[in-house]
Write a protein that binds this DNA or RNA. Structure first.
Lengths: 144, 144
DNA sequence: GTAACTGCAAAATATTTGCATCCTT
DNA sequence: AAGGATGCAAATATTTTGCAGTTAC
């Protein structure tokens, strides 16, 4: 399972974001890549507790959010999930507009940055600077 | 200021949602109607501290979220705001799709339920059941 | 070697729960 | 009168901070 995750990929992602490669950062990225879905802070703590202190998890996630490597996604039950954005991993850049797709069956979260957010017509005089969409539904696998 | 907020309006909203009219619920709705913007839990506590216990604020907000009278809105700094949805106040119904507009200048939050969320094209086979949009920008007043 | 990351301990905050009392209908 | 809402006290949980030791480059 973790064999499919390349350490090179992780190192590259970190370096592209001007971050040193450390145990905490590597481990947290591994967890996200293995999971493939958005995780709560609690989930992450659980999956890293053998190797990382809770405080390191807080600080690392904070760093990742600031760098735009991860994003937070609100849930309907009023909690927050952390998601690794795939295309961000690729190019190390942070985009302003985001579409997150969350599968209601398997929980898979996909960051659809490639998707163009359609123009919406707002009341007269309103100016849009940033749009975030959260799309809930069923992913390809679970739709059938 | 609070003179412009009708107690009738508040009572009606509560009754439409099968909720009894109590001090805590009335006071919290007043605060939101006076403010006109989305508020953090901390804001709400502050504005009600003279009359309500902190625990009542927690329980009342929870109730309002369950009834769909209010919604939570994630912010870019990873915290959560509570917003009273205007059209929900009107008809007492909860809609699945939501568009929230947040003015980056004055903080005014508008729940644009009347707005039709445009169809977005997702990867093959994906099914959409609910969409939430958060639009950041400048409201009419602040755009000029 | 130096700057930055990490773990530990502890403080500060935030949230939940139990229960007795009061209010709404 | 009865069920539910509220306040208070206290238990939990969450998040932040300071500092000393360790690691990455």
């Amino acid at each position: 399972m973790s064999g499919s995750i390349s350490q090179d990929q992780i190192s590259t992602l970190l370096r592209r974001n001007q971050l040193s490669v450390t145990e905490g950062r590597r481990r947290i990225l591994e967890v996200f890549m293995e999971a493939g879905i958005a995780l709560s802070h609690h989930d992450i703590e659980e999956k890293t507790s053998e190797r990382l202190d809770r405080v390191t998890v807080y600080r690392t996630l904070q760093t990742f959010l600031e760098k735009g490597i991860m994003h937070t996604i609100p849930t309907t039950d009023n909690s927050v999930l952390y998601a690794l954005c795939k295309d961000t991993c690729g190019d190390g850049h942070h985009h302003d507009d985001h579409v997150h797709f969350i599968c209601e069956i398997c929980g898979t979260t996909t960051c659809l940055d490639g998707l163009t957010i359609p123009f919406i017509t707002l009341p007269d005089g309103y100016q849009v600077s940033q749009v975030n969409m959260i799309v809930n539904g069923r992913c390809k696998k679970c739709a059938a």
